[in-house]
Structures are given as C-alpha cells and as structure tokens.
C-alpha cells in the first residue's frame, strides 16, 4: 500500500475549516451558478443527504444496506404523488391512470392532496418501514453480508412492484410533469433558488443532527456494537434497538433526499431507485469516506459531478469508471477521500 501520510500531513490543517468552506461555497452558489448548474448542484446535495444516513449505518453501525434506493423512492414518490394530485382539477385523475384504463383515483392516493400529510409521509413512511424491516432482521441476529443481500432483494422487489403496477404508479416511466409544489409554481421566478436553499438547509440540519448523535452515547454504543456485538450484549445492552434506530434515521434521510431530488429533477422513476442506484449510493460514501459525514457529502457531490460529465459524453463508460474508482478507493483508501485528512473524521 503506498504511503499517503505525506499528503495527509499536508492536508491536516485544512480539516477543521473544511465544513465551513463547503458551507460558504454552498451559500455562494446561487449567486455564481447558472440556473441549470444550480439545479444540478441541488440534486447532488439531495443525494448528499442520503449519503449522511449511509455514514451513520455503514460507517458507524457496520450495517451495509444495498437498498437505500427503496427509502429514497418512498420519499420521491410521496412528493411526486402530491404534485400530481394537488394540480388536478376536481374529479380528474392523472393522465397516466386514464391511459391505463382507470376511472378513479386509488384511495391511497387521496390523502397526498394534503401538503402536511405528504411531508409526514416523506418523513415517517421510510422511517417506520426501515425500523420494522431492520428490527425483523436484526432481532433474529442476522447481519453482515446476509443483511446486505436482503436489502438488495428488497430494492429489486420494490422496483419490480412499481413497474408492474403501471396503472397506479406510472410504471417504468415513473411520475413526471410537475407544475407546482405546496402552492408554488415550480418555474416561477425565485422558486428553484428557494428550493435550493431548502435543500442546503436540510443538508445542514442532517449534518449537524448526525454529528450530535454520533458524539452522544448512542453513537458510542453503535460503534461498540459494530466492533463487538457480543461484548456489548454481555455488558447488559441489547444491541438491536441501537441498530434499528440508526437504520430508521438513515431511511428517513434517504426519504428526504429522494423527495428533494424529485423536486429538482422533475421526475421519479424505478430507474432512480432500484438495485443499481442503491449500490451507487454506497459507492459515493465509500469514495468520500464511510466514517466521515463531510467526506460522504463530498463523495456524493464529486461522484455525481463526474457521472454527469462522463455519462453525457460516453454513457457506456460511466459504470466501468465508477467500478474502477470504487476498487481504487477500497484497496488504497479504505477511509475514502476523508482518509486523506488525518485523524478519524467526524
């Protein structure tokens, strides 16, 4: 393994100012970027929120989830359903339902007309589902690779389910053509920038909240259960609730990220939430640094930036490049880019 310590020693003084530097850049962005680039940055930041949750469960909890796309999708579809329903004249149903031969709105779509219900659904549905699912697995003391495989299967099943129910989910094409959210026209002046600020604010809230959580005794016990589950158990703690709560929080963050991404991208579809996107989410974090909140956000931004640059020119090349990057990081930088900065990261 090559010695990267010289590099990391040089970068060391930068470490404490890095989050502040990123925040300053984030605040400056709307004044410096074109509307197109700002929209792109906002999408990547939404993915950064997903990455924060993966640091919590994978880095600090040792729980590898290859199914975060499911929770991302739940958040994304919740906001998309709201936008589809809220814009409808009374009594009408979304056009894709008409084309599939439906005559009325499914009952479970109707509450999404309410903004409050939608926001609660974005926060609570992924969290509750994540809690139930992870409890069912962890309390049977299944973990490690098996857990990763189960989450992978869950992502596949979820995407398949959405595709197969074309009449109520929009199927393979997903949901798109949104005009307004919570009463604001999406193309009205100031609204895209406002949504950018909301995204930046939620990213900061997630970052600060998780920093606090990881520094608390909860974070300590999560790491303890990662490194010595039996020792923790035979000190009198039940490790399961710590892992379940962490997983639920990560699911909630993925849901929030998915909802914001859908707002910025103007579309949610199975292609954004299935097996491959779920693995990509883990790759961002591996590259940025699985133990570091700031590293993971940077990883999400950089990888998606690179993806955008490469895949527009050479669409087939991207997966190979990402694979190569992943192998490079795993073999040479197990702590990701954040590992270049000495110390342990946030």
């Amino acid at each position: 393994m090559p010695d990267l310590s010289i590099l990391s020693a040089r970068l060391d003084p930068v470490k404490p100012v890095l989050p502040w530097l990123l925040l300053a850049l984030g605040i400056a962005a709307p004044f410096a970027l074109s509307a197109y680039d700002l929209n792109l940055l906002a999408r990547f930041m939404a993915m950064g929120i997903v990455a924060l949750g993966i640091v919590l469960i994978w880095g600090h909890g040792g729980i590898l989830s290859l199914g975060q796309g499911v929770f991302f999708g739940l958040g994304g579809y919740a906001i998309a359903m709201h936008m589809k329903v809220a814009d409808l004249p009374a009594g009408e149903i979304p056009d894709f339902m008409l084309w599939s031969g439906r005559e009325s709105l499914p009952l479970w779509w109707t509450p999404f007309a309410s903004p409050i219900f939608t926001i609660l659904a974005i926060l609570l549905v992924p969290a509750l589902l994540g809690a139930l699912f992870s409890w069912a697995v962890f309390h049977r003391r299944v973990g490690g690779t098996y857990f990763a495989l189960i989450t992978q299967a869950m992502a596949l099943a979820f995407a398949t389910l959405i595709i197969s129910r074309q009449d109520v989910t929009g199927g393979f094409n997903g949901l798109t053509d949104f005009y307004s959210v919570f009463g604001f026209g999406l193309s009205s002046p100031g609204v895209p920038t406002g949504l950018y600020w909301v995204t930046l604010a939620l990213l900061c809230v997630g970052f600060i909240g998780l920093r606090w959580l990881l520094a608390s005794r909860f974070g300590m016990l999560l790491r303890a259960a990662r490194d010595g589950e039996n020792r923790v158990r035979f000190l009198g703690y039940s490790p399961t609730p710590f892992k379940v709560v962490a997983f639920a929080i990560a699911a909630m963050l993925a849901g929030v990220g998915g909802a914001l991404f859908t707002l910025h991208a103007g579309v949610v579809s199975p292609a954004l939430i299935g097996v491959v996107p779920s693995i990509e989410m883990v790759v961002w974090v591996a590259i940025g640094g699985r133990y570091s909140l700031a590293g993971a956000v940077v990883g999400a931004l950089l990888v998606n930036l690179a993806r955008d640059a490469v895949s527009s020119a050479f669409p087939e090349l991207w997966l190979y490049l990402m694979g190569a990057l992943f192998i490079f990081v795993v073999t040479l930088l197990p702590r990701g880019l954040a590992g270049l900065f000495k110390g342990k990261g946030a």
């Binding site: 520094a215 608390s216 005794r217 909860f218 016990l221 703690y237 039940s238 609730p241 710590f242 709560v245």
Partner: peptide, 10 residues
C-alpha cells in the same frame, strides 16, 4: 441505565 432511549446524552 442501559436502555437505548436513555443513550442520547453524553
């Protein structure tokens, strides 16, 4: 006190 909901402090 080893209950999880009492673990959020320092």
């Amino acid at each position: 006190d080893r209950r999880w909901w009492k673990s959020f402090g320092t």
